[in-house]
C-alpha cells in the first residue's frame, strides 16, 4: 500500500493513466446524473410560467374577474411557491433514486437565474401594459415568452449534461 508522505511524483505516463482513470470515473458519474430534472418538474414550471401573467392581470383587474384581486394575488403566490418547491423536490427524488445528489451545473444555475429575472421583468412590463390598456391580451406575449424561456432552459440543460458525458 502507498505511503502518503513518501509517494514520489508520477512520471508523465503515470500521470496520463491517472487522468484517464479520473475521466472514466467522471463519465460514469455524469451519465448516472444525466438530466436530473424529471419531466414533471419541467411540466410544472412551464405551467406556472404560462399561467402567471394571467393571474397577475387578475390581481390588477378593475373590476375584478372571477376572483377578487386579493384571491388572484394568493393564487399567484401559491404558483410561485409551487415553482420554488419543485426544484428541491426534483433533486430529492433524484437523490433517493440514484444515491447521488446532483451538483447544480453553473450553466443551469445561470439559466434558472436568467429565467427568474426574465420572468420578473416581463411580468412588470406586462402589468404596466395591462394597467394602461386594460386588455388581457397583453399578457399573452409574456406567457409565450416564459414558456419559450423554460423550453430553452431545458435544451441548454440537456446539452450541458451531454457535454459532461462526452
Amino acid at each position: 500500500m502507498e505511503t502518503d508522505a513518501r509517494t514520489p511524483r508520477p512520471t508523465a505516463d503515470e500521470a496520463r493513466a491517472a487522468l484517464a482513470d479520473v475521466a472514466q470515473v467522471q463519465t460514469v458519474a455524469n451519465s448516472a446524473m444525466t438530466a436530473p430534472w424529471p419531466w414533471w418538474h419541467y411540466a410544472c414550471v412551464t405551467f406556472v410560467v404560462a399561467v402567471l401573467p394571467f393571474t397577475m392581470a387578475g390581481a390588477l383587474a378593475e373590476p375584478a374577474w372571477l376572483l377578487s384581486n386579493y384571491g388572484w394575488t394568493l393564487v399567484m403566490i401559491g404558483l410561485l411557491f409551487v415553482c420554488a418547491v419543485v426544484f428541491p423536490l426534483a433533486a430529492l427524488v433524484w437523490r433517493n433514486r440514484t444515491g447521488m445528489t446532483p451538483r447544480p451545473h453553473e450553466v443551469s444555475l445561470r439559466g434558472v437565474v436568467f429565467l427568474a429575472a426574465g420572468m420578473a421583468g416581463l411580468l412588470v412590463a406586462a402589468g404596466i401594459a395591462f394597467l394602461v390598456t386594460g386588455s388581457v391580451y397583453v399578457m399573452v406575449p409574456p406567457s409565450v415568452a416564459g414558456v419559450g424561456l423554460v423550453l430553452g432552459l431545458r435544451v441548454v440543460h440537456g446539452r450541458v449534461h451531454r457535454r459532461k458525458q462526452s
Binding site: 500500500m1 479520473v22 467522471q26 458519474a29 445528489t101 447544480p104
Partner: peptide, 30 residues
Amino acid sequence: ATIHAPHRLRICALLDAAAEAEFSVVREHL
C-alpha cells in the same frame, strides 16, 4: 500524495462530479 493513491483519486473524482453520494453507490461505481 494523499489523493494520488488510485482508489482515493477515483473516490475524489466521483465526489467532485456529484454533490454527495451514498457509500454503497460509491462502492458500486468504483
